[in-house]
């Protein structure tokens, strides 16, 4: 099972801060595609992804228990 975290506009669009689904064995790109379709997310492509709090690329494969966060362009400071 994996915990998926959403922030900023993605959180608003999904309507949840996080969800739990099993995406072990899938790439980040595949999970983005799956969630974009499920929640009708237009801008998921432009989001960065973090696996276990470290930036990951679209080719990274998610393992069981990984925490996956989608990170829209940041605007701190």
């Amino acid at each position: 099972m994996n915990k998926i975290l959403f922030f900023a506009h993605l959180k608003d669009e999904v309507g949840e801060e996080n969800i739990r689904i099993d995406v072990a064995g899938r790439t980040v790109a595949e999970v983005k595609e799956l969630l974009a379709a499920e929640y009708n997310l237009q801008k998921l492509d432009s989001a960065m992804t973090a696996i276990n709090e470290e930036f990951a690329s679209n080719e990274n494969v998610i393992e069981a228990g990984d925490e996956v966060a989608f990170i829209p362009p940041v605007s701190g400071g």
């Binding site: 922030f7 900023a8 829209p72 362009p73 940041v74 605007s75 701190g76 400071g77």
Partner: peptide, 22 residues
């Protein structure tokens, strides 16, 4: 402004929006 996962939501008189890509 590049790598720290922090976001701001601007609230104006006529609406609100998450800001990104500054």
């Amino acid at each position: 402004k590049e790598i720290v996962p922090i976001w701001k939501k601007e609230h104006w008189e006529d609406g609100e929006e998450w800001i990104g890509d500054q």
